[in-house]
Nucleic acid binder design. Sequence first.
DNA 1: CAGTGGTCTAGACCACTAG
DNA 2: TAGTGGTCTAGACCACTGT
Lengths: 259, 259
Amino acid sequence: MVKQGDSAGTSGSSATLQFSVDRGSPVPLYFQLAQQLEAAIEQGKLAPGSLLGNEIELAGRLGLSRPTVRQAIQSLVDKGLLVRRRGVGTQVVHSQVKRPLELSSLYDDLEAAGQQPATRVLHYAVEPATATVAAALGVPEGSDVLFVERLRLAHGEPMAHLRNHLPSGLLTLGSAELERTGLYRLLRGAGITLHSARQTVGARAATAEEAAQLAEPQGAPLLTMERTTFDDTGRAIEFGSHVYRASRYAFEFQLLVRP
Amino acid sequence: MVKQGDSAGTSGSSATLQFSVDRGSPVPLYFQLAQQLEAAIEQGKLAPGSLLGNEIELAGRLGLSRPTVRQAIQSLVDKGLLVRRRGVGTQVVHSQVKRPLELSSLYDDLEAAGQQPATRVLHYAVEPATATVAAALGVPEGSDVLFVERLRLAHGEPMAHLRNHLPSGLLTLGSAELERTGLYRLLRGAGITLHSARQTVGARAATAEEAAQLAEPQGAPLLTMERTTFDDTGRAIEFGSHVYRASRYAFEFQLLVRP
DNA sequence: CAGTGGTCTAGACCACTAG
DNA sequence: TAGTGGTCTAGACCACTGT
C-alpha cells in the first residue's frame, strides 16, 4: 500500500493540479470537487483526452472518501464532460460539449447573444379554455385560462410570435413584467419548479396575418414550436404555440446519448 | 432495530408491492430494483403521486444497503419518473414522461409508428471533403469522405431527403445495407459508441429539385436538420444535412429540466 | 418534534482492460 | 498480472419538511 507515488510532471494530467475542499463550507464536498474539475476542464488545465488519475489516489490526495470522489466524477460524466472506461481510467472528453439541451428561453437566448431582446404584448386576458388548450393543460374545457400573445423582437426586428396559455390562478403575471423579461424567468421567480416539457417542432407557410406581423412575405416558411411544460407534481404549467421567422432563427442544441 | 414493520394495506403505496432481487444474477442489484420500480410505475401499480416509502425501510425489506437502494431510486429520478423532496419522501411523478430525447433515428421512428419505412440510395461515393464538411467533421479539407444521399419513404411516399458525410475508413458501409435499415443502427452494429451530437433545426422553402424529389409544390416549407455526431473520444462520426416534408413530419420530444 | 432525503466514511470484492 | 472503475455494505450526522 504505497501512499506516496507522485508521478508528477506529466503535463495535462491531473497529477499536477491542486484541488482542495473546504469542509467548513455548506457546499457539499462532491460539488466543490466537481466545480473545480469542471473549471479545470473549461480552462484547458485538464487537456482533452487526458486521464484524471485513479479515484482512490485522488480521494487520498483530497482527504475524501472514494464514494464522494466518485459522486463528483459521476456528475461530470452525466454532463458529458468526462468518460469512464473500466480498466482504463477516467478521461476528459475531446469534443466541445456545451449544454445537453435546456428548456430554452427565447428571451434568454437572445440576450445571451447580445441581440437586445424586446417584447410587445399584443393580447393579455383570461379566457375560457378551448378544447385544444384544455387537452394540453389537462384542465376542464371552458375553465379560466390566461392567454398571452406576444411579439418578440431583436434589434427592433420581429423574430417570433408567441402565444401562451396558463391555468388561471397559478401566478399573478403582470402585462408590464412580460414586456421586461421572459416567461420562464417569471415562472422560476414565482417559485415554480419546472420539471419537464413535451415539445413539437415543425414548419409551415406563414398566413397573411403572420406574414404582416413578422415582416415576412406571404407564404414564407416559418418554424413552429408547441410546448407543454410541467412542474414537479405533474401539473401543466404552460402551453405555448409559437412561430419563428425561419430566415432569422433556428433551434440549436447539443444532446447526449443515454448510455 | 425493527426488521419487520409492515404497514401493508395502503393501496397505491409501495408497501403492498413485492420487490425482490436475485443475488446470483450478474445484473447489478440496484439495476434489478430500478427495473422493477420502473415496471411497477409503467403498469400503474405505483400510482402517480404516491410515496415510495422511505429508503431505509425499503432497503431493510429487500435486504439491501441504503446506498444501493438510493442508486436505484436515483437512476429513476434521472429518468424523470420519480421526484425526491427532502423531508417529504420520494413520489411517482404525475405527468407522462416518455423519453428525454434520444439521438433519434428517422428509420426507427417510422418503423415504431408502423409506417413501413423504406430507403432509396440516390448517391454513394467517396469524395474529397468540401470546406463545410471538413469543418463539421474536423478533418482536412479535401480528405476522403463517404458521401451518401438517400430518400426516405413511408408507405411508399417520400418523407425526407437525407445527406450524410462520414470520414472514410471508419466503417465499411454497403449501399445495400443502407437500403435495409437506418444509418445509426449500422453504426451501433459496427461497435461505434455514439456519445453526443450537435443539432440545428430550422426551416426554409423547397428548391425546385427538392420539391420534385419530395412530391411537394415548389416553395413549400421544409423542415431542416443539420447534425454532427461524436463518439466517446470526441471524433466526429457523421455529419448529416437533412430536409423533411413539413406537411408530413415534425420533431417531437420530451425533455427534462436540469436540476 | 419526528421523519425524510442529502451527504459522507472506510472499508470490501469483483469485472474488465492493458501490457 | 497489475491497475482501473463497478458494485456493495453498515454504519453516521446533517438539513429540511411537516405537524
